[in-house]
C-alpha cells in the first residue's frame, strides 16, 4: 500500500471519512467514528503525530499534506 492507502485505512476507510482537508502541515479529517482510527497505523504510515479531538483527527504529515489529500480523495 502507498502512503495515501495506508492513511485512509488507518482512518477507518473511506466510509468513515466525513471530510478531509489539507493544510500546510497536516490533514484535517472529520470522521464518523473516532474509535475506528488507528493512531499507531497512522504513525507507521509516516505521520509525525496525530491530534484527535472528538470526531476531528489531525494527521500531521508535513508539507506533503496537499499531495496526500489529493491521493486519498482519488481513492475514495
Amino acid at each position: 500500500m502507498d502512503k495515501a492507502e495506508q492513511i485512509l485505512a488507518a482512518l477507518g476507510g473511506a466510509d468513515n471519512i466525513v471530510e478531509i482537508e489539507p493544510c500546510a502541515t497536516r490533514l484535517r479529517t472529520e470522521v464518523h467514528d473516532s474509535s475506528k482510527v488507528d493512531e499507531k497505523a497512522l504513525k507507521a504510515a509516516g505521520a509525525f503525530g496525530v491530534i484527535s479531538s472528538g470526531q476531528v483527527v489531525q494527521v500531521v504529515v508535513g508539507p506533503e499534506a496537499d499531495t496526500i489529500a489529493t491521493d486519498i480523495e482519488d481513492l475514495m
Binding site: 502541515t25 497536516r26 509525525f48 503525530g49 491530534i51 489531525q58 500531521v60 508535513g62 508539507p63
Partner: peptide, 9 residues
C-alpha cells in the same frame, strides 16, 4: 497550535 508547539514537523 500543538503541531508547532510540540515541534511535530
Amino acid at each position: 497550535d500543538p503541531v508547532f508547539a510540540q515541534a511535530l514537523v
